[in-house]
């Protein structure tokens, strides 16, 4: 019978991976759970002691924690619609027949932003958005915006984060949607084009069903990646000015490694993990109901 093998063979093939991932993926989580139940400050290691759920109580009632969480979702709420709208537009342009060479070049250049090291994106942001010698302000100066303080102003800094997130991930959305568009059978699309000239009607009634799996994937991955986002924001603003760009992962990093309160940071991390799991469950329930 197909695929019937002894337990020993299965273990020989799968065991190493399972053990490795358990050791590096699960064991640390259990340790974080232990840390989160203790007063555990790196500068006061003599005083580590069990304090039950005190850290969790502190996190759950901490306004700053929920603000950082809110900020993270606010970023998602601002950048995801932009990425979807721009990505859809780019996908439609690339899907239009003709200009093969130019389209290939455009597709290749779309690959660049999403492969770029996140930290380098942040550094580029520092250079290009500098108030005095940044090229962005040079571009804006004919329109009367020549000396905008991007990095030092709270709301401008947040706009800058949105900008780079959109720059880096719109290509991804565009290429995912383009893959969906190419799934539409040629005859179906041609027949629809004979019926109507309006691109919106075709998009809505012919192409959208083929785009759904891609859209779901984008929604899930952008949510997960925004909750994970650290490198780019850290190099660009370090969460500042003040805490105006301090996303949840930056906050946990600051509490754990710059305020040295590992106990509290672990509690925050566990709560973040729980929120991630709940969101993943909701997404799976809503979008993969048929499974």
């Amino acid at each position: 019978m197909r695929g019937k093998v002894s337990r020993k063979t299965i273990f020989a093939f799968l065991g190493p991976s399972v053990i490795a991932l358990a050791l590096i993926g699960i064991a640390p989580l259990l340790y974080a759970l232990w840390t989160s139940l203790h007063f555990f400050n790196l500068t006061k290691l003599r005083r580590v002691k069990f304090i039950g759920l005190e850290n969790y109580g502190e996190v759950l009632t901490d306004g700053a924690f929920w603000q950082a969480m809110g900020r993270t979702f606010y970023l998602l709420a601002l950048s995801l619609p932009l990425q979807l709208a721009l990505g859809m537009g780019i996908a439609l342009i690339l899907h239009k027949p003709g200009l093969t060479l130019l389209k290939t070049l455009a597709r290749l250049s779309l690959v660049l932003p999403m492969a770029t090291t996140y930290a380098v994106v942040g550094l580029l942001g520092q250079v290009m958005f500098n108030q005095k010698f940044g090229v962005i302000n040079q571009f804006l100066s004919p329109f009367g915006g020549g000396s905008i303080n991007w990095i030092g102003d709270s709301s401008n800094a947040f706009i800058m984060i949105v900008f780079w997130d959109v720059w880096q991930w719109t290509p991804f959305v565009a290429l995912v949607l383009l893959a969906g568009l190419t799934m539409v059978p040629g005859e179906v699309e041609e027949a629809a084009r004979l019926e109507t000239k309006r691109w919106w009607t075709i998009l809505r009634y012919v192409q959208l069903p083929f785009l759904m799996p891609g859209l779901v994937a984008v929604l899930i991955l952008r949510t997960a990646d925004t909750l994970k986002l650290f490198d780019m924001v850290f190099t660009l603003t370090r969460g500042g000015p003040g805490s105006s760009t301090e996303l949840i992962s930056l906050m946990i990093q600051r509490v754990g490694f710059r305020a040295f309160d590992q106990g509290l940071a672990s509690a925050q991390a566990i709560i973040l993990l729980i929120i991630t799991i709940i969101l993943a469950q909701i997404y799976i329930r809503v979008f993969y109901r048929e499974v």
Binding site: A27, A32, G256
Partner: peptide, 16 residues
């Protein structure tokens, strides 16, 4: 594993 935020692992991994 793709979904888990690396900061969640960074804290305990650092201590270990």
């Amino acid at each position: 594993n793709r979904m888990i935020s690396p900061i969640v692992l960074a804290l305990p991994f650092f201590l270990i």
